[in-house]
Design a protein around this nucleic acid. Structure first.
Length: 466
RNA sequence: GGUCCCUUCGUCUAUCGGUUAGGACACAUGGUUUUCAUCCAUGAAAGAGGGGUUCGAUUCCCCUAGGGACCGCCA
């Protein structure tokens, strides 16, 4: 058996969206599962639109989610000479030909076909014409001599056998009249040069595959296996594009979605393994296969991403969570001061309790991180005279507490409930607002213990409460 | 318009001819927690429609409907 080799081949013409990430993930997992190699190829031959920052974003995104590729990234534009060489060889072998139609001529034909509502296909005008008829003033393009008769079958590893009439594939351009190669040529040559065994990509490439296979055959190259995975759709049911909001990785990382959670979500989007929902990285490598990929497109579901993230927040090692949290804050919020970090770390067990994202944890821990209590304006209105009395009563008793724990604090609260003729809420809520600025948050004892005695007293006597 | 693909709860999906059609998310209800959340339990929720094939179809075949992708000298 040949060693499996797969690749992810994005073009750096826009930010990579999570559909692309999923394609990369599937390729990577397939290679890992087969103990093969996974490569990254940057298809930057569109000089106009390719941008270095998009290339960097692609590399960063893959790294973020934990996909590593073998060697350096393969830069397609550096291989153009190889592509041209193949075009010329096809020309020499009679598998391709010079076409002297001007682009205006072609455009005109297309327009007319559209008006008549008949399908446009290049009329193969120059397929059998001799060079002696060639106009001197037009630089030709090279077109591939596509099969005209019969049918072709693509044995797709996901979609099954797909059969089309060969005459629906036109004689496509492989070399432009400026001498640069087009996508189908470049992709085939590169995949061959890179010794790809399996091409796993979005099913928007299906038609290209029929073209590319013909190039392989014409060059007598071994044809790789193909697997076309269904696209990810938006809620509206359309192909996910770079313009869709919440489509890039950064959109997710900035709200505090963790890489492992998104990886797990993406894995299960369009792929399944029995009823299993949660996959560690090792498990996903172990179980991934092409048979588990469904044939129908799937929609992105934010609530599922969130709940997956919540699962990871609650279940991963707390040190790991803490590290991810501090990295997250450094990147997207304010870096947590080192003296606060210890408090956050000790409080993570309850801070993470009501969090779906790292941002939620950050918000829950806000009262620890910032020195000045940030009062929620509508909550602070709940501090009436009765509440003020509860706060000052609590403070008077609290001053005498030696050791902060639920056991030492609870009697005080219970006493206040009685003496103020109220319930737990009547005591807990004013205290929480005084200490954190909000009526929502962790349990009151957790808050007090996490702040420490001095800080609690300081906040209970905050002038802003009056 | 042409070619190709798809169709199970709202969403992601299981089922490889015989199931009370299962799970997860979301949703609803109840319980625990002397607030909120967590957690636990319970519930509602699906085979697009019509024909075949078969003792038996969600599953195989055909038609219809709906949806999608592609149709560049972009990738």
């Amino acid at each position: 058996m040949k060693k499996v080799a797969t690749r992810f081949a994005p073009s750096p013409t826009g930010p990579l969206h999570i559909g692309g990430i999923r394609t990369a993930l599937f390729n990577w997992l397939y290679a890992k599962n087969k103990q093969g190699d996974f490569y990254l190829r940057i298809e930057d031959t569109d000089r106009e639109r390719s941008k270095i920052e998009y290339k960097d974003q692609i590399i960063k995104s893959l790294k973020w989610i934990g996909i590593n590729y073998k060697g350096e990234e393969y830069i397609q534009s550096k291989k153009i000479e190889d592509h041209i060489k193949v075009a010329n060889e096809l020309l020499k072998n009679g598998q391709a030909y010079n076409c002297y139609c001007s682009s205006e001529e072609i455009e005109d034909q297309k327009k007319r076909a559209r008006q008549k509502k008949i399908p446009y296909i290049y009329d193969r005008k120059w397929r059998d014409k001799g060079e002696e008829d060639a106009p001197k003033d037009i630089k030709p393009v090279i077109r591939f001599k596509s099969k005209i008769d019969g049918k072709s079958i693509l044995k797709d590893l996901v979609q099954g056998d797909i059969e089309i009439d060969n005459n629906t594939i036109e004689d496509f351009v492989i070399l432009r009249n400026d001498g640069t190669p087009t996508y189908n040529l470049s992709a085939s040559v590169d995949d061959h040069l890179m010794k790809m065994t399996h091409i796993i990509r979005g099913d928007d490439h299906k038609i290209n595959t029929f073209k590319q296979i013909q190039i392989y055959q014409a060059m007598k190259w071994e044809v790789p296996s193909f697997a076309h995975i269904p696209l990810i759709h938006t809620i509206e049911g359309k192909k996910l594009s770079k313009r869709d909001k919440a489509s890039t990785l950064d959109d997710y990382s900035k709200i505090g979605i963790m890489p492992d959670a998104l990886r797990n979500y993406l894995l299960r989007l369009g792929w399944s393994f029995k009823d299993k929902e949660i996959f560690t990285l090792e498990e996903s490598i172990k179980h991934f296969n092409l048979e588990g990929i469904g044939k129908s497109p799937s929609k992105l579901d934010m609530s599922r991403i969130l709940s997956m993230n919540e699962h990871y927040i609650k279940n991963i090692d707390e040190n790991d969570l803490f590290n991810q949290l501090t990295d997250y804050c450094k990147l997207y919020k304010n870096e947590i001061k080192s003296e606060k970090k210890e408090k956050i770390k000790n409080s993570l067990t309850f801070l993470k309790n009501k969090a779906k994202t790292l941002e939620d944890i950050f918000n829950n821990g806000q009262y620890i991180i910032t020195d000045d209590v940030n009062f929620n304006q509508s909550d602070v209105k709940l501090i009436d005279d009765k509440a003020k009395k509860v706060i000052s009563d609590f403070n008077n008793k609290f001053r005498n507490v030696e050791k902060l724990s639920k056991e030492t604090l609870e009697p005080i609260v219970n006493e206040l409930i009685k003496s103020n003729d109220t319930n737990f809420k009547g005591v807990g809520q004013p205290l929480r607002i005084a200490l954190t600025g909000s009526k929502f948050g962790p349990g009151i004892y957790d808050i007090i213990i996490s702040l420490g005695k001095d800080e609690v007293i300081k906040r209970l006597t905050n002038k802003k409460l009056n």
